[in-house]
């Protein structure tokens, strides 16, 4: 039986552990891959270009995750009110949408909302210019991020929302609670662990998103994954060590997010 684990172990070691260890070692080396230094981290955390990239990524991820969570909570709740047939279809659509990201998504947005996008031109023609927005701006980038976050958030929150029993609502109403009191005292506390967990997944999802942002704004926007990509593939020449340090910083941010998530989960569950 243990023999069956060998391919898996080889795979994990070759494509996960070794590259990660290599990246970790590289992040502590001088340019050219020599010696030991903390200089790459110092540069990544103090140089305005890289510092801004980290902050921009964190902000974009936080904002898009919060907005997506709010929309997904309402959406997932509305799903629970549909018949099982409609519900299943909506969940299937969400499932497909979750996987619709990266370059195809960026292209779809360009076709619809780009400078000469279908809706951009249509809204202008109808005199509804206020409905248009600049896709190649932070707003546009945020919209695309929110778009690919929502279906994932719905899929992750839906089980928690579905677990809210009708009998709880009925019991609370018989005990004198109104709808707000039910959600405030029972509904939200029950789904809170689900929301917190989903938030951390969305945050990680947004922090690591590369293709969508790159296809949409190339390197015109300063984001952490785009900077890492640039450093590794090389603007003029590759700076693998600095790229590795930035990647480790990204990893640490995600780890911190996961730890906060775990703490929040414990608080939200409060023993039950």
């Amino acid at each position: 039986m243990l023999l069956l684990l060998v391919p898996f172990c080889v795979w994990v070691i070759a494509f996960l552990i070794l590259p990660a260890v290599g990246m970790l070692i590289s992040s502590f080396q001088n340019e050219g891959g020599q010696g030991f230094t903390l200089g790459q981290y110092s540069k990544a955390l103090t140089h305005p270009l890289y510092k801004t990239a980290i902050l921009n990524s964190v902000m974009l991820s936080l904002v898009s995750s919060v907005i997506a969570i709010v929309i997904a909570v309402i959406g997932a709740y509305s799903f629970t009110t549909f018949s099982s047939k409609v519900r299943d279809r909506m969940l299937n659509i969400s499932n497909v949408m979750t996987n619709f990201a990266g370059i195809p998504l960026a292209f779809a947005f360009m076709v619809l909302y780009g400078t000469n996008g279908m809706f951009t031109l249509l809204f202008k023609k109808l005199g509804l210019s206020f409905l248009t927005f600049d896709l190649y701006s932070w707003t546009g980038l945020g919209m695309v991020y929110i778009y690919f976050q929502i279906p994932l958030a719905i899929l992750l929150i839906y089980p928690a929302m579905y677990a809210i029993k009708t009998e709880w609502k009925e019991a609370s109403s018989l005990l004198g609670a109104n709808s707000f009191q039910f959600w405030f005292r029972i509904g939200v506390p029950v789904i809170l662990p689900g929301i917190v967990g989903t938030f951390s997944v969305l945050f990680a999802n947004a922090m690591g998103a590369y293709a969508t942002a790159y296809a949409l704004v190339l390197r015109n926007f300063n984001l952490l994954p785009i900077q890492i990509g640039g450093l590794v593939s090389g603007d003029v020449f590759p700076r693998i060590e600095l790229g590795s340090a930035m990647a480790i910083i990204l990893f640490v941010i995600l780890m911190i997010a996961m730890l906060i998530n775990e703490k929040m989960l414990k608080l939200a569950r409060k023993g039950y």
Partner: peptide
């Protein structure tokens, strides 16, 4: 209720 319907967070 048959399913008790106790509030799990309390």
């Amino acid at each position: 209720f048959q399913s008790y319907a106790l509030f799990p967070n309390m």
